[in-house]
Amino acid sequence: MAEPIIESIEEFGLIKNKKKSTNLFSRVGIVGCGNDGQYIARVCSSYGLDVIFRETTHERVYESLRRIEEIMNSRIRNWGATESEKKAVMSRIKGTTLLSDLKDCDLVIETVPTSGKGRSFEARKAIFEELEQIVDPTTVIATNSTTVVISDLSENLKNKDRCISIHFMINSVDSRVVEITKGLYTSDWTYDKVEQFVKMLKRKVIPVEESVGLISVRLFSVILNEACEMVMEGIGCKDDIEQLMLTGYGMRYGPFTIADIIGIDRVVRWMENLFNEFGDSRFKPNPMIKRLIRQHRYGVAVGKGFYEYDANGDKIDRNHLAESK
């Protein structure tokens, strides 16, 4: 068969010279590709968007790609995806060490891991400012952080109205919900566009007023602290509290398992930020959680936290092991 003829479609519309639509994101940039970044990259890519992420070193770029692939493999093992879907997803994700490679993106999400008190805020702010120099004036710049508010992050930018906070919940494949927060300067245009983007990813939008910890982090911190408190007081044991939340309240995971999935170190940073913001002792990390940190039991990622996990991230059932012995 003869080669197909290639044409540019713009010449063929009924309505000539129409304005180019600005409804869609087609290329998403991600700055920092840890757990959250990997999750966002994978989700965006599975809905057909091109993704480019920035990591600090080539090793980390490689590692992030490897872990995204690993998650896709695990999705295949759990019947959630097919081999060809994995290929398509991986083909749309690129990594780089240069922020300037994100210049063609129409949405950039910052997902830099929080590291130590106060440091992350300055780092994030610097990234926002650097991004503004690189990307188009209409590119939406967002943060996935829950513990800093978008108004503070964007205050030094020329076009602050394109900044917004988008928080993906990453603790389970079924947590198809995203918190979106408008800052003081965020325009309706930006909000609408991001809302449409989230809906396109088949996730529910939860609009949240600007406040540290949003809904998800603030509420979870208190639940986890209270659960630890009850263990310490001897009111109930860990497994029973988990079971009660699972069966009694229909939760998919109990508070200790969720904390392990999110990462204990991260939960502690959330709590510290909340405590700094609100000054309320209910946000202060419980000693049980601090003890886990000292023992480097950071959760699923390192194979142990409140519980222990095998290489696939599946919980090792100690009771079951004891019985079978």
Partner: peptide, 9 residues
């Protein structure tokens, strides 16, 4: 029998 591909947004 010709095939034409129109590319664009």
């Amino acid at each position: 029998g010709e095939q034409v591909i129109f590319q664009g947004e």
